[in-house]
Structure formats: C-alpha cells, structure tokens
Amino acid sequence: MERKFNIWRGSAEKGEFKTYSIKLERGMVVLDAIHRIQAEHSNDLAVRWNCKAGKCGSCSMEINGRPKLSCMTRMNEFAEDDSITIQPLKTFPIIKDLVTDVSWNYKQNKMIPPFKPRVKKNGEDHVMYQQDVERIQEFRKCIECYLCQDVCHVLRDQDKKERFVGPRFMVRLASLEMHPLDRGDRIPKIKNEFGSGMCNITRCCTDVCPEHIQITDNGIIPLKERVVDRFYDPIMWIYNKLFGIDTK
C-alpha cells in the first residue's frame, strides 16, 4: 500500500515540505519509511540515526506535531489514510532537512560541575545499597534524545536558553546531587546559573520521554525543593549561616 509523507526539506535559511509516496510493509517504523525514501527518491535526505532500537536517542524529530524517536514510532499507530508530516526539532536551529544543531546541549553539559566522589576508605570498594542507587539509576536511563528539551516551553517558545539548561540537564544535575558517593554542591548554581526557577512544572517533558523518566516529579521538583530549603527557609537559613554553607 502506498503512503504519503510530507517531509521538511531545506536549510536554516529556506525550505519547504515535500511529498513522497512509498510502499510500506508490515511492522515498519517511521525511520524505515524515511530510509526507503532516501534510497528510492532522494539519496541526500538528511536524517540522524544510529541504533534503531530506542537506545541511542539520535533519531528525534516531530512526527505529526509530536516530538518522537522515529525508530520507535510504528506506522500502525496512524490511521491508514493519515498522511504523515515529519519535521525537525523546532527548538534547535536546522542544519539540513531533519537534522538540527544540538551543540547547545553539549555546552550545557560541560558547565555542570563534575562528579566528585568521596575518598575510598583504606582502598576498600565503595558500598552503596540498591535502594539508594535506584532513584539516580532512573535519571541515568536518559539517552539524550533531547525530546524533553524540544518540548520545554522555556526553551521552545520563550527561547530562554541563556537562563535555563532544560529538563535533560536538570535530570543530570539530580543524578549528581542524589549520588550517594558525590561530595559536590551544585545547589547555588542550580538556582543561579542553571535556572531551576524557570520551570513551571507543566510536565510536558515527562510526557515525551521515551525512557519514561519522571523528569518533573522525581528530578526537577526535588531540586527546586533543595533550592527552597537552602535559600528561602528561615530556619535552614540560620542553620546554613552557622555551619558556613553557601547561600549566595
């Protein structure tokens, strides 16, 4: 059966949707369809992909308006007479066709102070219990597909990339702050530089996460709470003053 695909073709300066018709087979995902278009109609159609199994987070795009991994979006999710519209992530500048410049994300990651482990006792192995690592293991499932970054209002609609690192890196910060071995303190930076206050908890990021990470509830809100405890709780304020904890 022939199916119609409207695919964004072009560069940052100019572009348009082009329509392609191809035959589908049972079990195909959107990325398969794109590959078929690439082989049969347009050899130079630009698309990022790697593992084709939802593990690497390369093939993010917007499919009928939803940010999704194209390798995990089955064609039978759509009605048979639906035409499928595919465009690049809106939050990042287009390089070509479905490929966007996501280098901003790598810059955010680099700003985050690295993991700082406690010193091992007498050269013995670190001891951490499963129940204590489980909550950060959830955050470490992140495959960096940036779908959460794409859908975040602060980054997408308000374009405040200079004030908020986005859900992906809030989750990464949470994975460091809650790491049982970590001795770093990133709370002042989370408030001042990484913009924890910018998030208004609409949970759109959680909705699109292909790894089903509870980004907002388990990651961002606990960080917001830690910021509040440090900076806005009067009793904690006195405690922090007494023990010399950074509250700037």
Binding site: P114, F115, P117, D125, H126, V127, M128, Y129, Q130, V133, I136, Q137, R140, L176, H179, L181, D182
Partner: peptide, 20 residues
Amino acid sequence: VRELEEWGAVFDRTDKGLIN
C-alpha cells in the same frame, strides 16, 4: 570497572552494597 565507579557509574548492587 572500579575506575568507572570512581568516575560516577552506578552499577547494580549486591545485598552487601558491592557491584553486582
């Protein structure tokens, strides 16, 4: 493997809290 843990990797744990 131990070095990875020192760099932040979080492996599943045994009952005694060691790398499973």
